[in-house]
Design a protein around this nucleic acid. Structure first.
Lengths: 249, 249
DNA sequence: CGTCGTCTTGATGATGTTCAATGACAGTGG
DNA sequence: CCACTGTCATTGAACATCATCAAGACGACG
């Protein structure tokens, strides 16, 4: 069982933000150092905790260092829809300069380590370091593509395809920040969380996971995802990872 | 029956881009003039025509002046998912500087009038006119919120709620650019298009529209949407238009 | 050791899909 | 002017997928 030990159990001893943004553009040594400095104020927080609540005026961005957070909203009926995952290295929300009121909530799923970045800090960073600014814009573009991919997912894929696609996306994203190997990754989510993400019921998510296990593609359980057959899983999901790197050729 | 006569059948004789961006921030007279100049190169194009195809490297942005276009993608099974609508005044895609290959296709639904904006023109515009740059960033923010709202829509709403919500969103967005009144708006889409948007089958969209008609909320047919009971429709859809103006208080 | 949350499984039923056929309508060419 | 054609809308019937309800098992934690 993996234990989240900084700075990532498998890979370079690098800050997740540096790893993530480096994937979107070259960063100078001083830019990497400036980014790594953001992790200094990291706080450990529990799971199921709201960091930015719907309706509030955000005063700072949130940087995820470890764990998994998400954006979500509730319907009046009580149904919850998760609209994005925030993984280590993800920054939410760089554009808060323009937002007066949050239209959704940002909260942790499992236990996390997060840092709050005041808007001035963020603004100074992008002004002084053009490489960071460029990488952030590309990362944001990838985030938009990802949301569109989620529309595809819930809009026109079957249950098993949705779950498979989600597992593939998490694997790809976690791998770039050093929190996943080809064997799998830790996933501190409940099946209800997966249901709220994929637009399925918790019961049906359970049955879908069982089916994936019987198909010898992937085993999900115990807060852990063990990948048995990555090509098979990706084929089932029609997973095309290029949407995660829209700036690449 | 409304006929699309420039510059919009109901409202100020203003360019749709000016109307749209003005909603996101004040524009100086010279900025409005610069924006209106973008419409000069407008071309009439047929419906069901692809403007930017998946996989290609975009060389220019597309500005919609009249009609409705969309972003979409096909699955290998042939199923299509529409991930966004592009209405008059919408610009796609201001950030093409960072995109090397399109991950989805942009095409018209009904007949349109569109203008291609070379990246240099766009870059010059935002450099010289800070008001335009700010409004564009806010418009993009609204676009992101809209995509998240679509995830909500297909993820956790029933068929009638999805269709109602879509009709409400189109009404609100078209109204700000002068192409809708409180009575309704022209909608040159087939029921299959609505199905590909909402993640339903064309047959079920048909039945859902009939139900909405029987409920005396809205009548959709003949390329036209006649709104009978806007508050009722919005209530059914739980429509909260604030996601279209994330920068407002 | 009891309690709570989560996972698991079965049974039942609602919601929405698929297939198929018909009707309405516009465009086209004779 | 009228048949011919194709697209879109509409409806019925059978079916599939997935949700809901309910109950038990399991594990973590006080």
């Amino acid at each position: 069982m993996h234990h989240p030990g900084p700075p990532g159990p498998c890979g370079h001893p690098l800050h997740p933000v540096v790893r993530k943004l480096s994937a979107y553009g070259p960063l100078k040594t001083e830019e990497q150092a400036a980014l790594a400095g953001l992790g200094a104020g990291g706080q450990r927080v529990d799971g199921r905790l709201d960091l930015l609540v719907e309706g509030a005026a955000p005063d700072s961005a949130v940087l995820v260092l470890e764990g998994i957070a998400c954006r979500y909203r509730h319907r009046v009926s009580g149904a919850r829809q998760i609209t994005a995952y925030l993984l280590p290295g993800d920054l939410c929300d760089p554009d808060l300069v323009h937002v007066s009121r949050m239209t959704h909530t940002v909260g942790t799923l499992g236990p996390c380590r997060v840092a709050r970045i005041p808007r001035e800090t963020l603004a100074g960073l992008t002004e002084r370091h053009p490489g960071i600014a460029l990488a952030l814009r590309r990362a944001k573009l990838a985030e938009e593509e990802t949301t569109r991919e989620w529309v595809m997912n819930v809009g026109c894929r079957s249950a098993i395809e949705r779950v498979s696609h989600l597992l593939c996306e998490l694997h790809a994203r976690l791998q770039t920040v050093g929190w996943a190997t080809s064997a799998g990754y830790d996933l501190p989510l409940t099946q209800q969380d997966l249901a709220d993400t994929t637009g399925l019921s918790n019961v049906h998510v359970n049955r879908t996971l069982r089916q994936l296990r019987l198909m010898r593609l992937v085993e999900v359980g115990g807060k852990r995802v063990d990948i048995l057959d990555l090509p098979g899983l990706q084929a089932l999901a029609e997973f095309q990872p290029d949407y995660l790197r829209p700036a690449d050729g």
